[in-house]
């Protein structure tokens, strides 16, 4: 017979996040089921060990470090002269946003062709080790898959807004050069998996068009 305690319930109980009724149910089951009790005791042992004082936090830097860190961040951010904020994407009216995204998606579909067989087509030696999608044979296919998913998701305004926000965040990151064009947010991997597998040049092209620059 299958035990009624799945992984999430076990973790809820271990972490003290169970509803009282569920906790009583788990407690009662643990009394009767040696396998689950053994597993719980193992997990609880690790938890105690990690939370105990002997495993304490890593050594803290000296107090002066925090002031210096705050100063460096301040000089790189809010102490910089104010510049034109590029938040236009979030302030577009809904219709304009949807229209822009629809146009961007058409352009992006065109890009698929470019990546697949046009001038941006990656040669075999330049193709990065792609792809998270198991049955995706190439970068172009991964891009196409993502674009179709994006197109479908665009029916939902929230998703469209997220897509543009994400493109915006990616552009900022790319500008800063700090993260090499990684998607920061949102983390909707189902939509963006293919896009994440593009190389830097391809990412630039996608962002350029998607963000309407």
């Amino acid at each position: 017979m299958k035990c009624p305690i799945d992984e999430t319930l076990m973790i809820d109980y271990l972490e003290g996040c169970c509803e009282p009724g569920a906790a009583a149910q788990v407690r009662s089951h643990l009394e009767q089921c040696p396998a689950c009790r053994r597993e719980y005791e193992e997990l609880a042992g690790v938890r105690r060990m990690m939370a105990g004082p002997a495993a304490g936090p890593p050594d803290e830097p000296p107090e002066s470090f925090w002031a210096e860190n705050a100063r460096v961040v301040a000089e790189a951010t809010y102490l910089q002269p104010a510049r034109l904020e590029r938040r236009w994407a979030l302030r577009l009216p809904r219709a304009a946003m949807t229209g822009t995204l629809a146009a961007a998606a058409v352009l992006l579909l065109t890009l698929t062709w470019l990546f697949e067989s046009g001038p941006f087509s990656p040669g075999p030696e330049t193709v990065p080790a792609v792809v998270s999608l198991e049955d995706t044979p190439s970068v172009g296919q991964a891009l196409q898959d993502s674009l179709w998913m994006l197109w479908r998701e665009m029916q939902e305004f929230e998703m469209a807004a997220k897509a543009l926000e994400s493109a915006y965040a990616l552009q900022l990151e790319s500008d800063s050069g700090a993260a090499g064009g990684e998607l920061l947010y949102p983390s909707d991997y189902t939509v963006y998996d293919g896009l994440q597998d593009l190389n830097d040049e391809q990412v630039d092209q996608v962002i350029f068009l998607a963000a309407g620059y």
Binding site: E85, L90, E165, A169, L172, S176
Partner: peptide, 11 residues
């Protein structure tokens, strides 16, 4: 992390 957060605060 904080520099990126500041730049992306609008999002």
């Amino acid at each position: 992390t904080f520099i990126l957060a500041y730049k992306n605060l609008g999002s």
